[in-house]
Design a protein around this nucleic acid. Structure first.
Length: 952
RNA sequence: GCCGGAGUGGCGGAAUGGCAGACGCGGCGGACUCAAAAUCCGUUGCCAGCAAUGGCGUGUGGGUUCAAGUCCCACCUCCGGCACCA
């Protein structure tokens, strides 16, 4: 007799130590998991061919940022889902592309470098090593030969190369396509001015261009941020304040692709919510631009008449002159309700519009607005502010003067930076008019009834008090007035986007250097001319620095590199390298392409390989990338497509967002300062929150209360995992305690992939119990060695056993492609529950079960396959065929209802026809009794489903 | 404020308009054991009843239907995102 169990480890495998031989028959993930991981690696089980066979699938995970904290339990959720899909597809004979890599540039590595003085490349490498170890520990079937990190020089080379493609491309609106800059038509008046002017004209049209514009400067991070990275006036990362300062920056002309980015979403198999988020972010709106003539100090009428007649002749000009204020509106039908105009504080006409007696107030207001952070400026709770300029403009249709105000609720960066205010029909204008006592003129009535004068109505309706347009419906009015304005040269239809060009440069060290050179004049100062680094000189490496700190000023750390790095001589001219670096998004914009051909030294990807594998068939990751990453990479992909470098217009065919995994469910009670319990619904400021153990709580009605004090409610919910809350679950710990297969299976069993779900360690124990039962289904747990259970026999399976097998297989086969892993696992559990008690378990059902288990618990399945005496690997076995004949029953039990209420069940032949069903149901003693003396009005019978007697 | 998503046992969840609660956790009872662990078996929505059985039950209120967790209308709560874009 061997003593198998001792001390505190009873029931659990000893942590991470090789178990003594004597207890081997127990399921020991710590032993079998590394064994099979090495086996797969040694046999290159998951190596992907260069080109796919008849059927291909490209299944991609959003690659992780390798943070110093290591893998989080959220990572394996999506990664296990895709791993199951890819293992399943391989077993079905599909060629599978399933790579993994690391998004390794980024702020945390750099901040760590600053804190510790070690170069970011070192800590990044350490973190990648940790991540790789953890990912391998979970048995994912990646082709590790394709591993890449965005920080690899061989990768940076091609990121820079793609930047040069953007630099070499302009967007031709006529064909809605990106074209080589060499094809850009040069207007004669530019050509006349010579080479410098032509170069400047080209630079102004490139998809990658420089711009001196107000940017989001984050002093705490020492860098500027893209609009998308600023949430509510603070940085998305870290929540630091952001201020607007003017600065020369690199921009990417993503707005040129706004229409295509919106329209081409339509056919993608993406969650509707993500499509909508992208749509809203792009924010296409249609309306009209309208010019308001600036009223001269005197002689207003004649000047206006002269202006309108000249406009009638010339038409609506491309650029408004200084004599007009151009506004953008989505509601030109409310033109007759305009009672004032507003320009943004940064609007170029503010100076000329300001009259001397208002100058002081205007200057003060502009200064205050510039000082305000975006947070203050966008805080709706603060109410509207503004100042009158002293000037008026002339309403283009009525000829009446309209006062011009400056207010920061108008954004300089959207539309024309100026609006026509219609307080009766726009809530922001209404609030402003109320604040400053401006006129409110109603010009739209709701279809039902009259609007009270001076009230707010923002919907569509019928025009009133609108001159010749009175009586028109909103939509008809908009169409007609837009046409009329256009023919009078006073306005034109216009489209606007919320999307702004992508601010693409950062003042940080740990990013890709731009492959751009600035020409230096004889005085050593930049001449303004720029040129691209030659393709053959890529990659441009980061210089060796010892100090990575961002400056207090927006001067990038790279500008502190020595002249050896900074200064380049070429064709007898001196150049200074661009010292900004690219944002972290750059690398993640195209990694899915490099995976296809990761070692290619001649091209970023071989076109033949790209055409064969693209697009990505399934892309799984968190919803936090809904706009940023997914919008940016679609943009890059479209540029590459336009320039003929890739074969499809969209990179990601199907997208799935895994839900967040929260910490364990917690009960929180509140204690007052005096120490007594306070009920959760009326706890206040001074009370302290305390965790209450599960067994001291019970449910009473809708709420949980303290068991010992049922009047005291406690809160119950699960929270997002965070270090500060101390509820973070570490995958290493879970693997040590339960094994990788248990972690994988548990995360898939928790609930639907897309749902937010709380963690439950007891739940992990539950699936571990299932894997234990799988083990005992095959392995003899009474022997001292790992040998086949004597209960697994060569008997021919019975019909019932085959039915159980094929029904399980059918469910699993259907559930994997639809990513319904929780129900697939439940079905496998049922299978095991059926076969566990049997004394004789036919090989003919046990073997296919092990094959079906393999995508979910691959290590255990390999081990059991070996115990069954089969040659490894089960991972590449053919997926079991589902035999239809076993999915049907000879007889079935169906419910019988009376008036829709269940009253009995009857057993009938599976193919029974309606009369048989009704007769059998009516013959049931209980039904007969209930129907006696009642009048059956109608009988509804669904063959194979149910019978319902409707009685009076 | 706007836009998404979700409300089902003590908990996670399951359910092509057709037997609500599969599967798992937890609980309860039993077998095995000197005992415990592990394992196996049974049981477990609530109320009434010894039981057969009956009643009630999918956030709330209405509606459609022979039949509603599922479809429609209104509302409530929670979670997530966006937020002066004219």
């Amino acid at each position: 007799m061997t003593i198998r169990i001792c001390g505190v480890f009873a029931g659990k495998p000893p942590a991470n130590s090789a178990p003594p031989e004597s207890i081997m028959p127990r399921y020991q993930p710590a032993r079998i998991e590394p064994k099979w991981q090495s086996w797969w690696e040694a046999h290159a089980t998951f190596a992907t061919p260069r080109l796919p066979g008849v059927r291909k699938t490209y299944v991609l995970d959003m690659f992780p940022y390798p943070s110093g904290d290591g893998l989080h339990v959220g990572h394996p959720e999506g990664y296990t889902a895709t791993d199951i899909v890819t293992r399943f597809e391989r077993m079905r004979g599909t060629s599978v592309m399933h790579p993994m890599g690391f998004d390794a540039f980024g702020l945390p590595a750099e901040e760590h470098a600053i804190r510790t003085g070690t170069p970011p490349r070192e800590s990044t490498q350490r973190n990648i090593d940790t991540f790789r170890r953890q990912l391998k520990m979970l048995g994912f079937s990646y082709d590790w030969n394709r591993e890449l990190a965005t920080t690899d020089l061989a990768y940076v080379r091609w990121t820079q190369w793609i930047f040069l493609v953007l630099f070499d491309t302009w967007f031709d609106p006529a064909v809605q396509k990106g074209r080589p800059i060499a094809d850009l038509p040069i207007p004669a008046e530019v050509a006349e001015q010579g080479e410098v002017a032509i170069a400047a004209f080209r630079d102004a049209h490139r998809l990658a261009y420089q711009s001196e514009a107000p940017v989001n400067w984050c002093p705490a991070l020492g860098t500027v941020l893209a609009n998308e990275e600023v949430i509510g006036g603070v940085s998305e990362r870290g929540g630091h304040p952001v201020v607007r300062i003017p600065l020369r920056q690199w921009m990417l002309r993503i707005t040129a692709y706004a229409d295509r980015l919106e329209k081409e979403l339509e056919h993608l198999d993406w969650p509707a919510s993500i499509k909508k988020l992208q749509c809203d972010w792009i924010g296409r709106s249609t309306g009209a631009e309208v010019d308001f003539h600036v009223a001269p100090a005197s002689g207003c009428d004649t000047a206006f008449a002269a202006w309108t007649s000249s406009r009638r002749a010339s038409g609506f000009p491309q650029q408004p002159g200084n004599d007009v204020l151009r506004v953008y509106t989505t509601r030109p039908d409310t033109l007759y309700g305009v009672t004032y105009l507003v320009v943004a504080p940064e609007h170029p006409l503010v100076d000329s519009l300001t009259t001397p007696n208002h100058r002081q107030a205007i200057v003060a207001y502009r200064e205050a607005a510039a000082r305000k952070s975006d947070l203050d400026r966008t805080d709706l709770a603060k109410g509207k502010t503004g100042v009158f300029t002293g000037s008026h403009c002339i309403h283009p249709l009525t000829g009446q003067p309209v006062p011009v105000w400056v207010a920061d609720y108008v954004l300089s960066t959207y539309g024309t930076g100026a609006i026509m205010a219609v307080p009766a029909h726009d809530d922001r204008d209404w609030e402003f008019a109320k604040t400053f006592g401006l006129d409110i003129v109603t010009v739209v009535e709701p279809d039902s009834g009259h609007a009270a004068d001076g009230s707010l109505f923002t919907g569509d309706g019928r025009a009133i008090a609108s001159g010749p347009y009175t009586g028109l419906e909103t939509r008809a009015f908009i169409a007609k007035v837009a046409a009329d304005l256009a023919s009078a040269g006073l306005g034109k239809p216009a489209v606007n986007y919320k999307l702004r060009d992508w601010l693409f440069s950062r003042q940080r060290f740990w990013g890709e250097p731009f492959p751009i050179l600035h020409e230096l004049g004889p005085d050593g100062r930049p001449t303004g001319a720029i040129c691209a680094v030659d393709e053959t000189e890529l990659p441009v490496r980061l210089p060796e620095l010892t100090d990575f700190r961002p400056g207090d000023t927006p001067d990038p750390p790279l500008s502190r590199a020595g002249d050896g790095w900074l200064i380049v001589e070429k064709d007898g001219k001196r150049y200074r390298r661009e010292t900004n670096t690219m944002p972290q998004w750059a690398g993640s914009c195209w990694y899915y392409l490099r995976f296809l051909d990761p070692t290619n030294a001649d091209r970023f990807v071989d076109p033949e390989v790209e055409k064969a594998w693209m697009p990505v068939d399934l892309y799984v990751g968190g919803a936090e990338h809904a706009v940023l990453h997914l919008l940016y990479s679609r943009f890059w992909h479209k540029v590459l497509f336009d320039r003929g470098h890739v074969s499809c217009p969209e990179p990601f065919g199907k997208l799935v967002n895994q839900g967040m995994i929260l910490g364990e469910m917690e009960f929180t009670g509140y204690r007052s300062a005096k120490g007594g319990w306070v009920s959760a619904q009326d706890h206040g400021e001074g009370d302290t929150a305390a965790k209450v153990p599960f067994d001291q709580v019970e449910k009473q009605g809708e709420h949980f209360v303290l068991r010992d004090a049922p009047k005291v409610r406690v809160e119950s919910r699960a929270y997002k995992m965070s270090k500060s809350r101390g509820n973070v679950v570490n995958p290493d710990t879970v693997v040590k305690e339960f094994g990788a297969d248990s972690l994988r299976l548990y995360e898939m069993f928790m609930g639907p992939l897309e749902a937010t779900k709380p963690w439950s360690t007891a739940g992990v124990g539950g699936v571990r119990g299932f894997l234990d039962r799988c083990w005992r289904l095959v392995v003899d747990d009474r022997s001292d060695e790992v040998v086949l259970s004597p209960q697994v026999v060569d008997d021919a399976p019975t019909d019932d056993q085959l039915r159980e097998l094929h029904r399980m297989l059918d469910k699993v086969t259907k559930d994997i492609p639809s990513l319904s892993f929780n129900t697939a696992i439940a079905r496998m559990m049922e299978f095991v529950n059926v076969f566990t008690p049997l004394e004789r378990k036919p090989r003919g059902v046990i073997e296919p079960f092990v094959v079906a288990l393999a995508p979910f618990a691959p290590h255990l399945a390999e081990e059991l396959w070996e115990v069954l005496g089969k040659p490894a690997p089960v991972s590449l076995m053919t997926w079991p065929h589902v035999e239809e004949q076993w999915l049907r029953d000879d007889s079935i039990e169906i419910p019988v209802q009376i008036g829709g209420k269940l009253r009995a069940r009857v057993t009938v032949p599976a193919d029974a026809d309606i009369p048989t069903l009704e007769a059998t149901a009516a013959a049931d003693p209980r039904i007969a009794e209930l129907l006696a003396g009642k009048q059956v009005v109608k009988v509804i019978t669904v063959p194979g489903r149910m019978v319902n007697f409707v009685i009076r």
